[in-house]
Design a protein around this nucleic acid. Structure first.
Lengths: 140, 140
DNA sequence: GTAAAACCTGTGAGTGGCTCACAGGTCAAG
DNA sequence: CTTGACCTGTGAGCCACTCACAGGTTTTAC
């Protein structure tokens, strides 16, 4: 399999395949005649695995570490469980922050319904933003 | 005010002040003797405004556009209302995706409780990840 | 008065995960 | 045998910083 074929089978951009190859996540053979990369089913498995892991929010270096353990015939699963729990905690935190942000934005939006636009007066730039935090008690 | 003083008053990194200055969000006077930047209260307002807008998820170029309108003595508020609604929609979407992700992760985690780690067998890398999606119907 | 510490300057690189552009080589179909 | 679609490596661009570096300036302490 050449780059585009692998990319099609895993439904990613060919440049992503090239990038993962550069980063060492994929280790294709080279055609001695023209230098082309030749990927096999193992590479396809690795690529699909990497994409799933990316969807879970793992970084490429974490994925590299997992693949590396698997390459050394060790079960990567304990590492995966550990990284996964860390990742879940991070997701929970992002979620909490984003939820707070949404609430503040919604409240700001409703507060703005009754606020006039107003022109810059040398003291404020845009009251909508400058006072958006005060409108609800100012908790950061 | 010099860089560090402004940074302290707005509670940001001095390099952030320098960066915003480079990007044209802040336009301090220069000391003709030594070339130092001199910031005034207007710059402090702009910086604080920019930080609030960043907390809301606006990009620096959007913030630049808002400040630009204010500089031309036009009310930036209609622009702000428009950008704000776009941003709120984006936040809602991120939130929905993150919520889905969390659910899938939680289900995966509980499914894994009963799965053994297993070593790489040439067909799978880590079942935990490779089957994490299948375990719940495989809806992407 | 002077030496050290703490500032200032501009520039450039690094972060992460791609994506795109470029210049040149290779290959399949008509 | 040309056209077009692929391949190669390299480098830049995105975003909002953050940090490093080398050299100049100002403040502080003695």
């Amino acid at each position: 399999m050449k780059v585009s074929e692998l990319a099609r089978q895993a439904d990613v951009h060919p440049d992503t395949v090239r990038y993962y190859t550069r980063e060492g996540l994929l280790c294709p053979d080279r055609d001695p005649d023209n230098g082309y990369h030749h990927y096999n089913d193992e590479d396809l498995r690795r690529l699909r695995f990497a994409r799933k892991a990316r969807q879970l929010g793992f970084s490429l270096s974490q994925i590299g570490a997992i693949l590396g353990e698997a390459d050394e015939h060790q079960s990567p699963c304990p590492l995966v469980r550990e990284l996964f729990e860390q990742r879940l905690a991070a997701v929970e935190q992002e979620l909490a922050e984003l939820t707070r942000l949404r609430e503040r934005m919604r409240q700001a939006l409703s507060a703005w319904q009754s606020m006039p636009d107003g022109s810059p007066d040398g003291h404020t730039i845009c009251r909508l933003i400058e006072h958006w935090d005060d409108a609800q008690g100012g908790a950061a």
